[in-house]
């Protein structure tokens, strides 16, 4: 990998099949987000290499819809790699390698499981659709100073949307919070299931005990009569 980086080659793109909705990937070089999955369509944002993006729609025809903070648009999947993959600072956009199988899976956002609809109005509470706890970012987040490793990027990159560290910290904090809540929920469910199981066993034992006491009493009475 170090050799590849030294040679200035683009890091291998992620396999199209592994690009799932709501997964977080990153760009492998400077790339434009476009309004439509077409190289000639309008640019909605320009992202530097190494920018994390959230996948909004699964890949189709070599493109997928992605979002970075409040910006959304279509990006060619050849520009996407797994989060955390080292990126060459000045990798040219048009030298992307063929997609190939990579180790590990993309980091996916925590998501709660959706529950079915329920009754309301004098009947039952409506089950909420799952709502992953995600706080929105302020729309007009100021750009942070450029990281040292992208200072040598071409002039065009200066105008690009740069990773905002504070915003990213907030994003990851939110994701972490959601993960903690999901974990708590899972733990609580686990405890509840265990508690239910214990009480279920106790109920079964009690029913058997009542039955047994009844039989013993009857046998004793019969013996007494004899």
């Amino acid at each position: 990998m170090a050799m590849l980086l030294m040679m200035g080659m683009t890091v291998c793109a992620v396999d199209a099949e592994k690009i799932k909705k709501n997964s977080v990937l990153q760009t492998n070089s400077q790339v434009e987000l476009r309004e439509a999955p077409d190289e000639n369509s309008a640019v909605t944002a320009t992202l530097l290499g190494g920018t994390p993006v959230i996948i909004k729609e699964e890949a189709a025809d070599g493109w997928c819809k992605a979002a970075y903070q409040e910006k959304e648009g279509y990006v060619q999947i050849s520009y996407l790699v797994l989060l955390g993959t080292p990126i060459a600072p000045d990798a040219p956009a048009d030298t992307a390698a063929e997609p190939q199988q990579t180790e590990g899976e993309a980091v996916s956002q925590p998501a709660d499981t959706a529950a079915g609809p329920q009754q309301t109005d004098g009947e039952a509470a409506q089950q909420p659709a799952d709502t992953a706890a995600a706080e929105s970012q302020p729309a007009d987040t100021a750009a942070e100073p450029q990281p040292a490793d992208v200072e040598t990027a071409p002039q065009a990159a200066d105008n690009a949307v740069r990773p905002d560290r504070n915003a990213l910290d907030d994003e990851f904090k939110t994701i972490e919070e959601a993960a903690i809540v999901a974990y708590q929920e899972a733990e609580t469910a686990k405890d509840q299931a265990a508690s239910e199981k214990v009480w279920g066993i106790v109920i079964a034992v009690l029913v058997v005990a009542i039955f047994a006491v009844g039989i013993i009493t009857t046998l004793r009475n019969n013996k007494g009569k004899k």
Partner: peptide, 18 residues
């Protein structure tokens, strides 16, 4: 025991309005 069976899962209303 029947009361205790489901109590750990109770956090609030089943029929919110009523």
């Amino acid at each position: 025991c029947v009361a205790s069976h489901g109590i750990s899962k109770s956090y609030g209303f089943y029929f919110p309005a009523d």
